[in-house]
Design a protein around this nucleic acid. Structure first.
Lengths: 193, 193
DNA sequence: ACAAAACATTGAACTAGTTCAATAAATGAA
DNA sequence: TTCATTTATTGAACTAGTTCAATGTTTTGT
């Protein structure tokens, strides 16, 4: 059950089998059915999660009622509201399963325990946060400099499998455009081929 | 000379005076005159820096020749290209002083040394990276959901002192709009008061 | 297998933001 | 002080993206 997780950890750091097992034992498995929520706006995010099956969307609803997708999380992705989790304040985000999913959850207390007892875990999360950080910077630049057409093409190239599992409404919410406009972009691209 | 730095560190973690001093001694002071560069596209970023005086812009030039500002760094801000620095690959960013500035620099080797010999430093950078991460997420959501008017108003409220030190060209490059349009936004806001 | 709901496409009218060119004001270097 | 450069403002024409409403298609729940 924690096989994907151990593989993911060893991708970032080296760790003895025993410590790896100790750390993995801090996680609890949870099933989340399609359309069900792992987190809702206003709640305090009590977990950090690792997706072992299925697909989630992490999104925000703005003051006009529009949904913005911050990111999608499929198998081997981590999900949490880092702001809510770290600072124990109400979340501004929703985390919802887009397919029947399973996720391994660790609590704040257990994560702190791991930080204090397995120093390499501090490194693991520093390295992972850094990678996410790089990806976020990249996305800000892309959002500022690229046209919606190009961002859509980039998305398909970068996440071909996500692209197949998502509706255009979801992709448009990630790209920051209306789904009608995405539809027009798709037509334009299709006619060029 | 490292007073701002020690204060900044103690804002994030607790650390004995001796370890604090050891860590601070790993930094070298560097003067960067207005318009001079700390980093250029294509170079490998060899440092992580802490600004003690002045103001920098961290920006990218896209394929159409437009400049996008990723962030500004004034006193007590950290600057680096984390992607280039961490992965030792050519940078896509420019870091330029907008005023006569001073910055404390630490090399990758010395930072690794600190990670290995002062465990709290690992925590320091994890905590800081996490905070930046939260801010970047916030910015992505704002860029997707807010109109340029609102982003400009938010910027002024959030960074009133930066606002005074920056030209409209720089602010527009941060907001992701043309400086002409920013000028029109300013007129509109002014006429409403 | 059926009805209801969610999804995708399209066109027409609209709006936010760009581009280009002209002009004035502020700043900087010698 | 002066000349050159950067900065800010403005208007007019344009373009990328939105909004709304209509229509057909697919998926879902029962």
């Amino acid at each position: 059950m924690t096989e994907l997780l151990t593989r993911n950890i060893l991708n970032h750091i080296t760790l003895s089998n025993k410590k790896l097992e100790n750390f993995c034992n801090l996680f609890n498995n949870k099933e989340v059915l399609k359309k069900h929520f792992l987190l809702r706006e206003g709640e305090i995010c009590k977990f950090e999660g690792f997706v072992t099956k299925g697909l989630f969307r992490v999104y925000h609803i703005d003051s006009n009622g529009f949904e913005q997708v911050l990111y999608f999380a499929q198998e081997s992705w981590w999900i949490t509201d880092i702001d809510s989790f770290t600072n124990e304040k109400p979340s501004q985000l929703y985390i919802q399963a887009l397919e029947d999913s399973e996720v391994l959850l660790i609590s704040k207390k257990d994560k702190e325990f791991a930080y204090n007892n397995i120093p390499k875990i501090e490194k693991l999360f520093r390295v992972m946060t850094q990678k996410t950080h790089i990806a976020l910077q990249r996305r800000i630049i892309d959002n500022l400099s690229k046209t919606a057409d190009q961002r859509y093409i980039d998305f398909i190239e970068k996440y071909p499998n996500l692209f197949q599992r998502l509706t255009n409404v979801q992709i448009a919410a990630y790209l920051g455009i209306s789904h009608e406009f995405l539809s027009k972009i798709r037509r334009k691209i299709a006619s060029k081929k």
